[in-house]
């Protein structure tokens, strides 16, 4: 499966690692062309991040290992886009 986009729910402690450290760790993974790290929520000692990664033939295991190696924690996958091209989410009309 050719994964082209991943949206991950990631948590980290407030003090460290820095967003730059996480970004550098992800950038070093195979197939990563671009990434976006956005602050989702801040707790007393932790902060939640939404990380969007786009590229070609992304290796989720390698990316999750890189994020956890930097000292953050992957809580889950929020979105996967795969295939020959990227398709955006289509809202159900009910």
């Amino acid at each position: 499966m050719n994964i082209r986009r991943l949206l991950l729910d990631v948590d980290k402690a407030l003090a460290r690692p820095s967003l730059l450290d996480i970004g550098k760790a992800i950038s070093g993974c195979k197939g990563v062309e671009a990434l976006n790290i956005s602050l989702a929520d801040v707790d007393v000692e932790t902060m939640g991040l939404e990380i969007t990664i786009e590229g070609n033939d992304l290796d989720y295991d390698q990316i999750a290992k890189a994020i956890e190696g930097s000292g953050a924690v992957v809580h889950g996958i929020e979105q996967i886009v795969a295939g020959d091209r990227i398709i955006e989410r289509t809202e159900l009309a009910r």
């Binding site: 948590d11 402690a13 690692p17 000692e45 932790t46 000292g71």
Partner: peptide, 18 residues
């Protein structure tokens, strides 16, 4: 921090880049 992040092994973060 490991406790706040709900990691089961408290020494987990020490084995990372941190």
């Amino acid at each position: 921090a490991a406790r706040e992040l709900n990691l089961l092994a408290h020494g987990h973060l020490a084995t990372t880049q941190l």
